[in-house]
Nucleic acid binder design. Structure first.
Lengths: 297, 297
DNA sequence: TAGGTGCGATCAATTGTGCTTATGATGGCG
DNA sequence: CGCCATCATAAGCACAATTGATCGCACCTA
């Protein structure tokens, strides 16, 4: 049985007239006649009584009509559902993100996303990149955001590069200088954050590489606390730029260029299950927003 | 969009495998692949992620699946509904019938019909043939049964011939004779029934035709009373055979052949709206039962 | 009652479209 | 490293749907 036959049947039943139904369906009248005959042949019953004044439903036709209409309605609704999804109008967007992303990048992005996609259900979960990957693989979220991490079933999509920035308080001597040498850090107190973060290892190796042994080191367990320490003048810190946007803008913290040390850049990637296919709808839209934002400046 | 595409989609989604779905749908695998590609092209989205281990639904596929399944289910249910109707399993059978039919023919027939068609809703309305016609034309009933009556929108289907039978009580002198002459009726009392019935006019004209003036006439307003009168020996009557079946069988009443007068036969017809088409399902089955019954024979 | 009108069915030719068989490409698994 | 399973592609074919023109019929109108 063909959907076209059901549409023909439904429309002819509605109009009681093959010729006019042919117009509204944009086919010729003989084509419609053939569809109806085909349907009647397949079902083994007459659906219409042919009169000189048009077509009238038989009992069988009356019995079939509601089913035909519902079937057609389901198809249309299905098309609409897919279309809405494709255009990102509806659907869901659950994201797993590394702490810095979750804290400093997502809020603004999701606020913007919410205004353009009011009917999309959103959610955020936070974890280190390994946990993000796990959540993606277990399909607990539609998208992960974190540092690159290889896995057979995961696909990585670069979204922006983050960067470690050396920051000092506004009263610190470095604040007045364009750039400093790495060795000068030896005279200062270095503030480290979150031993579990991937940045911890980076920072440490950078320092060690330069043969610098800082006078003293303070370890914090989160970025926010580390920033406070720096602002209070207790030391200097290498912090991800995406966590500093507000303080750099208000000049509460001052960035300092370090000569002789290459800028430490870390790609931030989106993580998708390979078998989820090309991102679509809300996920695709959010990915575009994420890349466009260039969140790290 | 083709129904076949939705079926392909649904089945592949269920099995996660084009080749196996091709088996269950009894087509070749390339045919299914083409259907899926056509559907994806038309919707503008990928419905599956192709892997070496089979097909996995995308978000769009997951969104579409329930609609596709419901559409297919509606089509199947529609087919079943038409089929049940065609086979007379379900539906309704509302009949309007002339009083004699309603009283003496329908009860036994409807009892038989009920056992073979337990899920058919049935109903009977009684009226003279003109009223039966009206009910048919107003679609208050599916079928009328009565004497022939012409109308542009009504189709008449002969079902059996009724016959006026001269009956007398078992003690009446005629009861011992094979046949009588019409003129002999002049010596007897004639019992007429129901002035509104079409039989009244028939009977009267038959008598007048023969130039017979019965000694006396008693008019009753229903057949049952007329029968009682005859049984009590108060006179003789010309009554429709279909109203006499029980009394003739028990020999409470005796039929008498009248020589010189042709048997008075009246066709009983079923009445259908022309625009209702060929009878189907319960109506067709009942019509067949009605003709087979030869109720007046 | 003769001609006009509207409607559905039919016909012949053409176009399309899906189906089948055979083959290719790719990834996983022993 | 070759084999197996899986899906995609290609070529040829057959059937079916579409089209435009025509027919037949019933009804309406003059």
């Amino acid at each position: 049985m063909l959907l076209a036959q059901l549409e023909a049947f439904s429309e002819v039943a509605r109009l009681g007239n093959v010729s006019r139904a042919a117009d509204t369906l944009s086919v010729t009248q003989p084509a419609l006649t053939a569809r109806l005959q085909g349907l009647e042949r397949e079902l083994g019953v007459d659906l219409f009584v042919r009169g000189a004044r048009g077509m009238t439903l038989t009992d069988a036709g009356r019995a079939l009509l509601p089913y035909a209409q519902r079937a057609i309605a389901q198809v249309l609704e299905g098309q609409k559902a897919v279309d809405d999804l494709r255009l990102g109008k509806v659907g869901q967007l659950f994201i797993a993100a590394a702490p810095a992303v979750s804290t400093y990048v997502l809020p603004a992005l999701l606020k913007a996303f919410q205004t353009t996609h009011p009917n999309v259900r959103m959610g955020v979960r936070t974890g280190h990149t390994e946990e993000v990957l796990e959540m993606v693989l277990r399909r607990e979220v539609d998208l992960g955001v974190g540092r690159p991490i290889q896995h057979q079933d995961a696909e990585l999509i670069p979204v922006f590069d983050d960067e470690l920035v050396l920051v000092v308080s506004r009263h610190h001597p470095f604040a007045r200088r364009d750039r400093i040498r790495l060795q000068e850090l030896a005279d200062d107190r270095l503030i480290l954050f979150d031993r579990a973060s991937s940045y911890y290892e980076l920072t440490s190796s950078l320092i060690r590489q330069a043969g610098v042994v800082p006078e003293s080191v303070i370890e914090m367990d989160n970025v926010e606390a580390a920033k406070k320490m720096v602002i209070e003048g207790l030391g200097v810190a290498l912090l991800p730029r995406m966590a500093l946007l507000a303080e750099l803008r208000t000049r509460l913290l001052r960035p300092v260029r370090v000569v002789g040390a290459p800028p430490v850049r870390r790609p931030i990637v989106a993580i998708r299950r390979t078998d989820a296919g090309t991102p679509m709808g809300p996920v695709a839209d959010f990915l575009a927003l994420l890349r466009r934002s260039r969140a790290a400046g």
